[in-house]
Structures are given as C-alpha cells and as structure tokens.
C-alpha cells in the first residue's frame, strides 16, 4: 500500500511529466486558456495515458520480448497510442459533444503528445510490472491534469491582470509556467529515498 502511494505521489508531484520532465508542453500551453477545457483535456489524456501504458506493457511483455523484437518498440507503441486516441475521440464525441467541440484539434493531437509515448517508454526502461505500469501511467496523467488545471486557473487570472505590452499573451504564459516549474522543484526533497 505504501509502495503504491509512493509511486503515485512520486510520478504525480515529484517527477511531474510537464514541469520536471518537460514532456507534453504543447497541450500544456495550448489547452490551458480555460479551466473547463483544461479539465476535459486532462480527463481525456488520463484515459489515454493509463490505457496506453497498460497496453504498451502488455505488448512489450508478450510480443516484443518473446519474439526478440525490441527494435520495433517505438513504432508499435505509437500504433497502440494512435488506436487508443481514436477510441477516446469516439467516446468523447458520443458522451460529450460540447467537450468534443471545445477540445477540437487537441483531441487527435493527443496522439503526438510526447508525454504519452514518453511514459510508455519509461515504463519499459524502468522494468515496471503490470501494476506498476498502470500506476505509473495513471500517476503521470494525474500530475499532468493537476498542472494543466492549476496553470489554466493562473492564466485565467493573468488574463485580467495588467501585463506589459511586450509580455501579453503567450510570453507571460511561459513565464508563469517557469515559475510553476520552480515551485515544483520543491517536491524533489520528498522523493522516495
């Protein structure tokens, strides 16, 4: 139980995919204008990331290792991720047409979200078991969602603030992201050991 909790906190906060590993910056900047959109995007990414890390673990263990095909790892993982994203798109479209409209192009772009491929590959690299892969994928996605929502909240406030003309829009967004990243560096002190 303690191990599970440590893995979850470790991936979500200490080794946050966005702010510590700098993966998935495109949706981080792109879909963080409104908190509602950020939550939707976070949910969709969580679904895709958890499912794809589990599937990637399965393919690695039952297909690539027995057949000695480790060199096919990247392309098979991309294939799996693309399929999962397609599936997610169908689900979102069916369940919430409004969210489908808001997410727009960012939904199919989850395919090229490097955080998802990154998490799948890190799972393999660190030799995780099935449960560990599941938790690692879910924890990373939870961290991604958390950061996305926090950042969207900050940006909603920054939008109302008086920002020097040169920093308006994306530049102040990047500065805010940098400060947030600095804040998350503080979690490095509570890593597992």
């Amino acid at each position: 139980m303690q191990e599970i909790l440590l893995l979850l906190i470790g991936t979500a906060l200490v080794n946050n995919v966005v702010l510590v590993k700098f993966l998935g910056l495109c949706p981080f900047m792109g879909t963080s204008n409104k908190v509602d959109t950020a939550i939707g995007m976070g949910m969709a990414t969580t679904f895709v990331m958890t499912l794809s890390s589990v599937l990637a673990w399965g393919i690695e263990t039952f297909l690539l290792v027995p057949l000695d095909l480790a060199f096919l790892r990247t392309i098979t993982f991309i294939l799996v991720i693309a399929a999962v994203v397609q599936f997610t798109e169908m689900v979102v479209r069916k369940i919430s047409p409004a969210l489908y409209q808001t997410l727009g192009v960012y939904l199919p772009l989850i395919t090229t979200n490097c955080a998802i491929l990154g998490v799948a590959l890190l799972n393999v690299q660190e030799g995780h078991t099935f449960v560990q892969s599941l938790l690692y994928g879910f924890g990373s996605a939870a961290g991604f969602t958390l950061i996305l929502v926090i950042f969207a909240g900050l940006r909603e406030r920054v939008a109302l603030a008086e920002v020097p003309a040169a920093f308006e829009g994306a530049p102040i967004g990047f500065i805010v992201a940098g400060l947030l990243s600095l804040a998350f560096m503080g979690f490095a002190g509570i890593s597992a050991k």
Partner: peptide, 23 residues
C-alpha cells in the same frame, strides 16, 4: 517483425471498427 506488426495493426483496426459501430 513484419508479421507481428501486421497482426497488431489488423487487430487494432478491427477493434476500432467495432467500437465505431457501437459508439
């Protein structure tokens, strides 16, 4: 290598096709 990629692609494609019908 060719076989496993082809099988994987075909399986995922079929599953997506079925999902598309239900959803």
């Amino acid at each position: 290598a060719v076989g496993s990629l082809a099988v994987l692609g075909a399986t995922l494609g079929t599953l997506l096709g079925i999902a598309a019908r239900y959803l």
